[in-house]
Simulated scan of single mutants.
Amino acid sequence: MRPRFILLGDSITEESFSPAGGWGAALTSRYARKADVVLRGFSGYNTRWALFLLSRLFPAGSEDTPALVTIFFGANDAALPDGSHKRQYVPLPEYKENLLKIISSVKSLSKDTLIVLITPPPVDEATLQVAAWKFFGARPEDASPRKNEITGHYAKACVEVAREAEVPVIDLWTCMQEQPGWQTSYLSDGLHLTPEGNGVVFEKLVEVLNKKGLSFEAMKWDFPEHGDVNAENPAKTSW
């Protein structure tokens, strides 16, 4: 059977199969006939709520262990505790603890599963404030429900967890802000990703996979290429 790549996260993961350049869709295309990419994105979820999914996503004793699990939470955890999205807020120490629990749950299934943490991307507060007013019932005078500086603390904590757990991490919050004009080139509404932003996630993830032995070139086809099939008697094909 093909190896499975499980993408676990919030709306930025849920939207990763968007026809407009989603990073999950790009990964599926990249690994066609090499791996099955399984989408497990849950819009609006934080790490606290994600903990209740673990027993069903990664049931104990399962032999069908994934080759890769990406863990992409933090954008909702970093909501302001007194803002319009306060129900999603998770204190920073708990966020780190929750990430460690998720990692531990995956590691308990198999030591061979590659786990990759992804930090929340940066936040464009001005654009997000308008989006909150238009789509989430906030008043025009209300402040942005998230602050880029605060999100940066969560991104730093995610990097620290990765170091402690000895797993790779993609620091989106830092690398995206290295590009001038990131607010509009990488973010569609101040929080979620544009096609270009999705492209950054895809490129950074492929870099990690290439380094960790899960490159497209290193993985085997699940069945022979068509030119190798015995045309007269397919059952006698050598593979």
Rank of each mutant, 00 (worst) to 15 (best):
N210G: 07
G74K: 05
V90P: 05
E97T: 10
D228V: 03
E225M: 14
E160H: 10
Y95E: 03
G213F: 12
K211W: 09
T174W: 09
H153T: 05
V200I: 11
P145C: 13
P81Q: 11
L39K: 03
A79I: 04
I103G: 01
H226Q: 08
G152S: 11
G152M: 08
D189G: 09
K212M: 15
A162T: 15
I71H: 13
L27M: 07
I115P: 04
L39M: 03
T119Q: 12
G152F: 10
Q183R: 15
L187V: 11
D64H: 04
D222W: 14
F58G: 00
A155E: 12
R146Y: 13
R87Q: 13
V69K: 02
Q88Y: 05
V200A: 02
T237C: 05
K212T: 14
W23F: 05
M1C: 13
Q183G: 09
I71K: 12
F202H: 02
F42I: 01
K111T: 08
M176E: 03
E178C: 02
E232K: 15
T13K: 00
E160N: 14
A131M: 12
F202T: 01
L172E: 07
A157Y: 12
W239G: 05
H192K: 10
P122I: 13
L8M: 10
P120T: 09
M219A: 09
W133C: 10
E63K: 15
R2E: 14
F223D: 07
P81R: 04
P3D: 10
S108Y: 07
K204A: 00
P168T: 14
P180I: 11
K212P: 08
L99H: 09
L209V: 09
L187R: 09
Q88L: 05
G181P: 08
S238C: 11
I71Y: 14
P180W: 08
H85I: 03
L172I: 06
P59E: 04
A60R: 02
E196Y: 05
L109M: 04
E15Q: 15
V161I: 15
I71A: 13
L53S: 01
P168H: 14
P180F: 12
L27G: 00
Q177D: 13
W239R: 10
N76L: 13
A231H: 10
V159H: 06
I150L: 12
L128T: 09
M1T: 14
S104F: 06
E203A: 04
T151Y: 08
V159Q: 09
E15H: 11
N98T: 03
P145H: 11
K86L: 12
W182K: 04
L191V: 15
L205Y: 00
F73E: 01
A131T: 15
R48E: 02
K212A: 15
L109H: 02
W133K: 09
V206K: 03
V208P: 11
L80R: 07
Q129V: 00
G181R: 12
L100F: 02
Y89R: 06
L205D: 00
D112N: 12
V206Y: 01
L114R: 06
G22L: 04
Q177F: 13
V38C: 06
T127F: 08
S84Q: 06
D64S: 10
F73L: 08
I118N: 06
A131D: 14
F17K: 01
L100E: 14
G190P: 13
